[in-house]
Amino acid sequence: MEELKQQLKEFIINELFLEDITPEEIENDAPLFGEGLGLDSLDAVELVVLLRKQYKIDIKNMDEGKIAFRSIDTLANYIQQNGNG
């Protein structure tokens, strides 16, 4: 699980082109959107596409998105419960 969280942090930094931040600086329970990591709706689009490609995960609707995209912890849980990759 810790390995998956680390992977997700690197994945988010690299794929969403986040600058001036390292995986170590991202807290597992910090919000990904708005305050916290500060991702926006267009980053959410990228995340949906990348999760589909990388982990064969579908975030089917906003209710699932609300749960999965809360933090690194919740995203890792969601992948573990729903992933096929």
Partner: peptide, 15 residues
């Protein structure tokens, strides 16, 4: 006004 500006539903529709 949905969560994240409706972006999740939008991208799913396109995909």
């Amino acid at each position: 006004d949905n969560y994240l500006g409706g972006s999740i539903e939008t991208i799913n529709s396109l995909l």
